[in-house]
Every structure is written in structure tokens, then in C-alpha cells.
Design a protein around this nucleic acid. Structure first.
Lengths: 204, 204
DNA sequence: GAAGACATGTAAAATGTTACATGATTGC
DNA sequence: GCAATCATGTAACATTTTACATGTCTTC
């Protein structure tokens, strides 16, 4: 089985879902279209990793709700123990930024502004999800929801970091020179390496 | 032509490369194996976007150095003007973190520690690359090297943010509860939204 | 009345990875 | 002597995307 299969198992380990619902969850960890998900679910059920029950609905199509089996959980556990493969990150935006010298400063700035707008949207929606999780009475590290919480807070932090970088780029585009900033970046890089391991609170 | 093709054009826009060298550059924006790159270069040359010249070498195989043509530059310019597609991010590590409740706290911590070790490696090598760029006398926004600089500083910042998140996760795993942290995260989320647009320097 | 969410599936095309092929040089 | 780097290419396989199919309900 491939990573998509294990991503599905990891989702069903926490909660039973239909293929349609899985599609939305998977966006966060391993994007896949429904045309890939449905055949995969069939294959996984044949192997005994999953079972489904049909939930009849009024006014909309019936669903197949999939649940993980003992065999599925065992397979997932074994897979988790192996060290993960390298992450894949593909971003057309970065290729376009790389070619910004062809684009001119105004158009480059527009490219970055558009990205900021998209990031603001996802920051807002992630903020809402985290607020929801705030409502939970007890969220311990052994809870099935703990991984979900880690995931969303990571997405949130990453989006904010990306936005900060975008704003830094806009600043460079305005000032047209970068020498001083290059210096600062390299400096903070080294500075942070020194600080590593020290509790930040001690610095205040 | 697909994104890989435009990624190649963007690289050759800055500097001429052999297929082998392109493979290494592409790792940063659009990872591709040589088995995908070589046929793509042939196809692109047939279309008139590229030309190559053979560089004979002693003691090692000859290279084909590819250069972008006028037609290639035009194609790249047109493509850059279109708004970029969504970024793709696939990471087995995150699926494993999501399933950390199955793993137990010790094994979860090991998973995160291993990630930190990998991040430290890339932080170190990116730091070196940025130091190299520091040497450059003039790095203006219209320079062909400007995009390259933006790219590496983004990679650097992202890796550092990822490491911070990892360390935060390790802290949670130790304390076993997250309620207070959830609160802080959501709070800083809102706080930062308030500060947006204000120059940070004004706060000192 | 059009668009989008809900819901599941198949087929074809594009994209990406692994394996097969070859071969010299350099550093451990 | 073994692994890694340099260097290019093809073939087979796996994965992913786009298009084809169908149909109801809800919101603008």
C-alpha cells in the first residue's frame, strides 16, 4: 500500500468517515482527488484494513461510512514506526518569485500581495479551528484529537511565517537594495544557533 | 508545457546549465529526477525554447549546456503573468505526528527529535549559502540573483519556523496537557492580527 | 435558473519514480 | 576496493489529475 492508503488509515484511526469526507480531511496532509480515494477504499477493504456500512439519507445520496479494522490499525502502527520519507513541496509561486527580475517591481509586488491575501484567508480559518479546539475541556497528548491539534497549529504557524516573509519581500522591493538585510538575516541565523537550547524566558 | 518546463526556463533565465546541474537547482522549487529532466530538455529544444552546446571535458563525460532562447523567455514571461496554482505539500512526517496517540509519548518524541536533526542540517547549509550571498557587492531587486536570494531566505526561515514548532511539540509531550498553550496560541493569533500593518520598530 | 455542496464511481491522460544501461574519477 | 560525484539517456511502473457519468438539495 502507498502513503495515500496510510493517510486514510490515520484519519479513520481517529474517526469513521465517508470517502467524500476523507477527501476534505486529506487536503491537510496528503491531497487526493475523489477519483483516487474511492478505488483506494475498495482496495483497502478487500485487504481487510477497513469495513463500511451504508448510511441511508433523505434528500441526498447515501453514504458509505468506513471504519478501520484491527488489521488496519496494526498495519498503520507498523508503518508509523518506519522513518518518514522526505517531504515534497512544489510551489509555482516560488518559481515566479525567482523570476521576479523579469517581471518588474510593480508586478512582483502584485504577485506577493496576492499571496498575502490568500494567506490571510487561511490564517483566519485556521484561527477559527483553533478557537474551536480551545473549547475542549481536556486535550491530553494521548487523546485522539491531539495529533489534529498539532497539525492545525503547525499550519497556522507556517502560514503566519509565510506572511511575514512576504511582507519582508515587499519591503525589499520598495527599498531596492538588500545588503543590510542580508547581513541581519545571516546574523540572526548565527545568533539563534547560539541561543538554541536556552529557555527564551531567561532572556527577559 | 507543464510547470516542470517553466521551472527549467526560470533557472536558465538566470544562468545556463546542463541537465545534471538543473536537477540540483530544481530540488529547491520543483523536484524532478533526471529521467524526467532529460526528455523534457529535448522536447523543449524541439519547440525552440532552448538551445544547447556540447562542452567537452577531460576525465569526465561531456556535458550539454542549455541556454534559453528569445522564444523561451517570451513563453516564461507569459506564464509568470498568470496567477500561480495552489502549492502542494505532502509530508509523511505529519501523518505520523497525526497518529502520535497510537505511538506513545516516547516514540512520538523520537519522531520529532529526528525531524529536528534533519532541520538542523538544512538550517546549517542554508546559513552557508546566505553567507555566500552576503559577499555580493550589490544585490538589487532587478538583479538576476535577487530571486535566488529570496528563495533561500524563505527556505531558511521556513526551516527555522518548523524547528520552533517541533520544540514546542516536545514541550507539550513533556507536560502532557495543552490547554494553556492553546489559549496562548489563539491569543497571539488575534494579537498579531491587530499589529498587522504597524511597523514593528515602533514597539521598541 | 445557476452555482455549489453532497455523494460515488470509472477511464484516460499526464506526471513522477524506480530500475536498467554505461563508464571515468575522486576521496575514504 | 567501495561509495559518491559527474554525466546522459530509456523503459517500466506507480501515482496523480482531468474528464466523463449521474442526480438531489440548498443558497444567491
Amino acid at each position: 500500500m502507498n502513503t495515500l492508503g496510510y493517510a486514510i488509515l490515520s484519519a479513520l484511526g481517529r474517526k469513521s468517515y465517508s470517502g467524500y469526507e476523507l477527501g476534505k480531511y486529506l487536503e491537510n496532509v496528503w491531497p487526493a482527488k475523489h477519483s483516487q480515494i474511492y478505488p483506494m477504499l475498495t482496495k483497502m477493504e478487500e485487504k481487510g484494513f477497513l469495513v463500511h456500512e451504508i448510511v441511508e439519507q433523505v434528500g441526498r445520496p447515501n453514504k458509505k461510512i468506513y471504519s478501520i479494522t484491527e488489521k488496519g490499525t496494526e498495519a498503520l502502527k507498523k508503518w508509523i514506526a518506519k522513518s518518514p520519507s522526505e517531504q515534497i513541496h512544489r510551489d509555482e509561486f516560488l518559481i515566479k518569485v525567482y523570476s521576479s527580475w523579469l517581471l518588474g517591481e510593480e508586478n512582483s509586488a502584485k504577485l506577493v500581495h496576492d499571496r498575502i491575501a490568500k494567506l490571510d484567508e487561511s490564517i483566519a480559518s485556521l484561527s477559527d479551528k483553533i478557537t474551536e479546539m480551545e473549547q475542549m475541556e481536556e486535550l491530553e497528548t494521548t487523546s485522539k484529537d491531539f495529533g489534529r491539534y498539532l497539525l492545525f497549529s503547525r499550519k497556522f504557524r507556517l502560514a503566519k511565517e509565510e506572511k511575514d516573509w512576504c511582507q519582508w519581500v515587499l519591503g525589499l522591493l520598495k527599498n531596492k537594495k538588500v545588503n543590510f538585510t542580508v547581513f541581519c538575516l545571516a546574523f540572526t541565523g548565527r545568533f539563534n544557533l547560539l541561543l538554541d537550547g536556552l529557555p527564551w524566558i531567561a532572556l527577559i
